[in-house]
Structure formats: C-alpha cells, structure tokens
Design a protein around this nucleic acid. Structure first.
Length: 469
RNA sequence: GCUCCCAUCGUCUAGAGGCCCAGGACACAGCCCUCUCAAGGCUGGUACGAGGGUUCGAAUCCCUCUGGGAGCGCCA
C-alpha cells in the first residue's frame, strides 16, 4: 500500500517554525517510503483565513523544498462533498439537527461548570428536536455513547478514550459552513491518507475524527502526534520570541537545509549524529525515533547548525544567496568580486549568510574610517615602515594570487626577522578597516592589486596625518 | 473541574534491566593550533522530578504524588 501523508495548515497566520517541523516529518514519512505527500489548506474559517497567509505557506514550503506531490487542495472547494456526507449522515441517523441557541448552550455549559462537570452538549435535540420557526439549525454528529475509541499512535502508542467522554459535536454551522473535525475526517478519507502526522495538540480531536470516519464506513489512518516546539524560554511559541514566519529565517540568512536539519533534530534523533543532509534524513527518518516530550528552540544551536551546513556546502551553492544578502546591504554589484572566493574564505567565519555578507562588505567598499582600537594598535608610526615595504613588495608581484601573496609576505617577514603577524595585522586594518578579516593572503587576493595598493596608500597617508606621540 | 499527553545536564538529545557512579551536541571556562577572527583539537563543570514497589540488579518495568502542557467552541 502506498504511504500517503498530508500537511494541513490553516491559513490564518504565517507559516511558523512549529508548522514547518510538522510538515517536515510528514514529508519525510512519505519520502522515506516512496509515498505521496499532500498539501491541504484548511480554510473553513472564512473570518480569519487570508490569501496572504496561503501565499506565505506555499512560498515557505517552496523555499524549504518541501514539495507536495498532490495539492494544494482547499477545503472551501470541497463544500459539495461535505454537504453530501452530511446528508448521508442525516439519513442514516449518524447526525441530527439541533435548534439550541447559543445562549442556551452557554447556560448549559455554565451550569455544568458550576457542578464541576466537564462542559459538553447534553444531546437534548438528539431524539426528536423541536423545530423552531425562523431558526436555522446546526447539524450535530451523533457520537456513539458507549464503548471506547483506541487511537493507534506511532509516537505515543495506543491511546484510549471512552465514548462517554465525547459529546455530539457540530459538523455543520447554521451559516452552512462545515466544521473542522468533520472536514478533516472527510478529507483524510477521500485523499486516502494512511498516516496523519500532526501536533499533539490534536490528540483530543482524534477520537472524534475516528468516530466520524467509522460512521462513513472508513478505515481510520494511523496517527503520529508530534510534541510541541517551545520558545527558548520554554514557554509556548509566540510572536514575542522573534521570528514568526519561516521566511524570516531566510531573511536572517539561514540555509533551508540547515533549518530543516535543526528542526529535524528537535524531537527526532539518530544516535549521536547532529548534521544531516536532506537525503540522509530521508534515508534515516523513522517515527519510532521521535520523542514524546516538547522541546525548546535553541537559537545558538540553530545558528551553529547553519554554519556547519555552510562549511560543508559547495561554494557555488552559497554564492547566489550571498549575493542577495549583499544587495540587501546596499552592494550594487556583488559580482564585482569573486563570490566563490569570498564564500571560500568566509564560510567558517559566519553563522549565517547575512553575517557573511556583513563581514564581506569591506571587499566592496574601502574603509571610510578605521576601527579606533585596531587603528591605534596597528596604524601607527611603528607599523608605517611595514606598510611601506609591503606596498613595495606587493607592487612588484608578477602574479596576484593568494599563494603568491602569501609567499611574498612571508619572505618579507623572514628577511626582517619578524613574524608574519607583524606585517599582516597592519595590512589587515589598512584594507579591511578593522582587526578582523579572512587570512590576509586570501583577503588581498580577492580585493585585487589595484584596490589593495590604493587602500595601502590611504593608510600610509592616514598615519602621516596622525599627530606624533 | 473533567479527559488526554509529557517528565535524563541551562538547552537539544543517546539510553528499549546489567555495557551508565549516565554518552554526544549547543552554550560556557581553560589550554593547544595560529597573521586577526573563525574553524579544528584537547580538558573541565552541571542531569536520570519525588516516594513507593518488581528484580540478584532500574534512567530503563509498575503504582502514587509533584510539576508542566493540551483539549473540553456554530476556532482550526
């Protein structure tokens, strides 16, 4: 049997990190089994669903590479089918019309709470409701009143619910809109979903959905309820934790595969392995290895994971996104320097592409001011002669490559009986404006001879203009 | 209140009765490497929520408690 899974977000907000993790696991289950992954948009809440949110979900999934084999399907397109099932239920006695008003229901629930009972519909319209003129009834599902429902859950094991705990839920609102649990059951059946992978906040909905499925004569799928993802402080994830939308992680300079790797390791593990490529995750993922307890986001580890992926990626894979980040920082033409060389020199020095872009700005812009601490230490009278001899030696180089530059500077240092650092640091501050950059030979190679000599001349002039101490 | 879920270092986790006076990773501290910053290497500290069982033996199995979370909607 072909494994079929689905990701079913409701487009009422941005696609957040928790949703992405759910989508990832669901996608992984399908990919691992050579099955089918379906995207279904649950937009029956017409008040809160927006086209912008739908777009953000699709764009996010696309950026992450979590491609759907079928869909996106929209529940609002499936109303005829829902009404068809509701009519069947009405005829078969699996559902009934209920004329109770909201006030009546509120009163009922208030009374139950006062008696310390679980608030629930008491089924007063179940047997021959009194038709009220001018009131459009809702349709309620006649939930079985006895026996139990066993949820087959791959991460939790079997979970048992007593039918006596469940009430008759509304499946069709008075405004004609079917409700969530009902639509999910119909869709999962119609789309022949074999494995429902979703957040464990849905565990309590599951027995209702199973009863609905059984009333349709359907075989319930297997479930896998994933633990929640919490904010770094261990509380429920919300806007105040910063990034809400996955797309914000793209802006922040994360690689999609790194984000997926980090999210995958939240709740899932494969021994001691930390870094996984997408292919490895597909090959190794197993719901049996998924944790039951909630986990908190750790921004430092997320960044570290991203860095690890950047270090392992072929340079060519990083140049395009780096160019985008450079442009976002105001660099008109990122290709004015070798992006591959920049990536090669910066990849282990940055946690994100954005950081990499920031640290690489000096390749495109000569320093307009020197970092005061670095300049004080390295752009002074002591450094002046080193800058001058380096300028001369570099000017005479026949070929301008990192290896040539390195050899030249080393020879220079050796001939004066000093360490390379003595010369490299002043050079670094002169060309980069501060005390930090990739190795000096690579840095100069990327910059190009003309630019380097110009910046050295500027630094020499700067020192000359400094008051003598 | 009722129902359901969960519980190993600060965080992510390994651990399916003896291999564990608990291993790895992030973060932190120190050292090494070194032209800066990183990366890398080495070293260090900190965890099985509590109490009862079961067993020759429990982080691992059972029970109770405690603590956290979810649901109880004409939201999804």
């Amino acid at each position: 049997m072909t494994i079929r899974t689905r990701f079913a977000p409701s487009p009422t907000g941005m696609l957040h990190i928790g949703g992405v993790r759910t989508a990832l696991f669901s996608w992984l289950v399908a990919r691992r089994a050579g099955g089918v992954f379906i995207l279904r948009i649950e937009d029956t809440d017409r008040e809160r669903s927006t086209p912008e949110a739908v777009h953000a979900i699709i764009e996010g999934m696309q950026w992450l590479g979590l491609t759907a084999d079928e869909g996106p399907f929209y529940q609002t397109d499936r109303y005829p089918r829902y009404h068809e099932v509701i009519n069947q239920f009405l005829q078969s006695g699996h559902a009934y019309r209920c004329y109770c008003s909201k006030e009546e229901l509120d009163e009922m629930r208030a009374a139950q709470s006062a008696r310390k009972e679980k608030p629930r519909y008491d089924g007063r319209c179940r047997h021959g409701a009194i038709v009220r003129e001018g009131v459009t009834p809702v349709v309620r599902f006649a939930n079985p009143q006895e026996g139990q429902v066993v949820v087959r859950d791959l991460v939790h094991g079997p979970i048992v619910f007593q039918n006596s705990e469940l009430d008759d839920l509304i499946i069709l609102r008075s405004d004609g809109n079917p409700t969530y649990n009902f639509c999910v059951a119909v869709d999962d059946w119609d789309m022949r979903i074999t494995h429902v992978v979703r957040g464990d906040d849905h565990i309590n909905n599951t027995p209702r959905q199973i009863n609905l499925l059984m009333a349709m004569g359907a075989e319930p799928p297997i479930y896998a309820h994933l633990p929640m993802i919490l904010g770094p402080d261990g509380t429920k994830l919300s806007k105040r934790h910063g990034a809400v939308s996955v797309l914000e992680y793209r802006e922040a300079g994360f690689l999609p595969e790194a984000l997926l790797n980090y999210l995958g390791r939240l709740g899932w593990s494969h021994g001691d392995q930390e870094i996984f490529s997408i292919e490895e995750m597909i090959a190794l993922f197993d719901l049996a290895d998924v944790n039951k307890s909630a986990s908190a986001l750790n921004p430092e580890k997320m960044a570290w994971t991203n860095q690890q992926h950047m270090m392992r990626s072929p340079s060519a894979h990083l140049t395009a996104p780096l160019a985008l980040h450079l442009q976002a920082l105001g660099v008109i033409d990122p290709s004015a320097r070798s992006l591959e060389a920049i990536v090669a020199s910066q990849r282990e020095r940055a946690k994100t592409l954005r950081e990499m872009a920031e640290a690489s700005l000096f390749f495109y812009r000569a320093p307009t001011a020197y970092e005061s601490k670095a300049a004080g230490k390295h752009l002074n009278a002591t450094a002046l002669p080193w800058l001058q001899v380096a300028e001369e030696a570099l000017g005479e180089l026949l070929t301008w490559g990192a290896v040539d530059i390195h050899r030249s500077l080393e020879t220079l240092a050796a001939s004066h009986g000093v360490s390379l650092g003595k010369i490299a640091q002043p050079l670094r501050v002169a060309v980069a404006g501060g005390g930090v950059s990739p190795p000096i030979d690579q840095t100069l190679a990327i910059l190009g001879r003309t630019e380097v000599l110009a910046r050295l001349a500027a630094a020499v002039a700067y020192i000359a203009g400094q008051p003598a101490v």
